[in-house]
């Protein structure tokens, strides 16, 4: 383990191109020690590219990117030694059992055999897979595979953990179990960088996050503040009909129209709904708390990306 007072990751004007396509266009951010930092954004926003640059498997084209105070293009081995990675796509070794997967992986980090055996056993306990020890990995369920990949990412006791959509495709039980493991790791001062499409996951886990689109960072902050700043505390929803729109147009209320509903972002939901009932005589009004998902859709639009 290395001691750091400086930020774990510093990116300034970081850029990555694939031919003509600019995947990451001049982003800047810092990740502090033992923080959970999230990257959100639609598919193709540049999140995974950013992750791959941080884990030193895809070299940066321009700008600055330092992990543990070292440049990612010149100090790959030193950086990778202290990083654990949960990739988006499962890449467990199908030629090995659960135990062998972790054991062989620990060898890549030069962990001595005896120490490695102990660590593998305690990691299997940590992700509750002791009973599956001698099973080939292709026999595991989706949730078990993800847990095993998390265990594999921890085999070198990393001080930085990179999770690229860690809970994709999992049932609620498996997802909550993983969330608890991730929070447990944060308590042990592991710095965590994650990407996710599940915005309640981001809200629950992240201390700070950025929302990216088209290779750029649109917002940065802690989840609660972002919601307050861009949406307000609540969302008032009414049906999207002609009388509704014409009545709303007579008031000074700002609204967003979707296919079947009209949404009003507000900090005074009671005021708004009272006014709507009085002035417009609406019968069906829904008031709910604003979420990160509202911010996400407001900033990145509702159009499908792929």
């Amino acid at each position: 383990m290395v001691d750091f007072i400086a930020p774990v990751i510093v990116a300034q004007n970081l850029q990555k191109k694939f031919g003509e396509l600019v995947a990451v266009e001049g982003i800047s951010f810092t990740v502090e020690e033992s923080e959970v930092f999230g990257f959100l954004g639609p598919n193709g926003a540049g999140k995974t590219t950013a992750m791959r640059m941080i884990q030193c498997v895809s070299p940066k084209d321009d700008g600055k990117l330092e992990v543990f105070g070292m440049d990612v293009n010149t100090h790959q081995k030193e950086i990778k030694k202290n990083i654990g990675v949960v990739p988006q796509e499962n890449n467990l070794d199908p030629d090995f059992t659960v135990y062998e997967n972790l054991f062989v992986y620990s060898r890549y980090f030069d962990i001595p055999k005896k120490e490695s055996k102990e660590r593998v056993n305690s990691l299997l306990e940590f992700v509750q897979l002791e009973e599956k020890k001698d099973v080939m990995t292709y026999m595991l369920s989706g949730g078990m595979k993800r847990r095993l990949i998390l265990a594999r990412a921890l085999v070198n006791n990393p001080s930085l953990l990179i999770l690229d959509e860690p809970t994709v495709g999992l049932d609620p039980q498996a997802r909550h179990l993983l969330w608890e493991k991730i929070r447990g790791l944060k308590k042990q001062n592991v710095t965590i960088v994650l990407t996710t499409h599940y915005l309640e996951e981001a809200a629950y886990l992240c201390d700070r996050l950025v929302i990216m689109d088209y290779g750029k960072i649109l917002v940065e902050g802690d989840p609660d503040n972002i919601v307050k700043k861009y949406i307000g505390s609540d969302v008032v929803e009414v049906d999207n009909t002609k009388p509704v729109i014409s009545c709303l147009d007579k008031t000074d209320i700002n609204y967003e129209t979707l296919d079947s509903t009209v949404q009003i972002y507000t900090n005074e939901p009671k005021d708004i709904s009272d006014r709507l009932m009085k002035e417009c005589k609406f019968e069906k009004i829904t008031v709910r708390s604003a979420t990160l998902e509202d911010v996400f859709l407001k900033l990145t639009g509702r159009k499908l990306r792929e």
């Binding site: 081995k77 030694k81 796509e89 890449n91 992986y105």
Partner: peptide
């Protein structure tokens, strides 16, 4: 198919 190389280059190996 197995993404074995991807998994290995996430460790200190190049």
């Amino acid at each position: 198919y197995q993404k074995t190389f991807d998994a290995i280059i996430a460790t200190p190996l190049t």
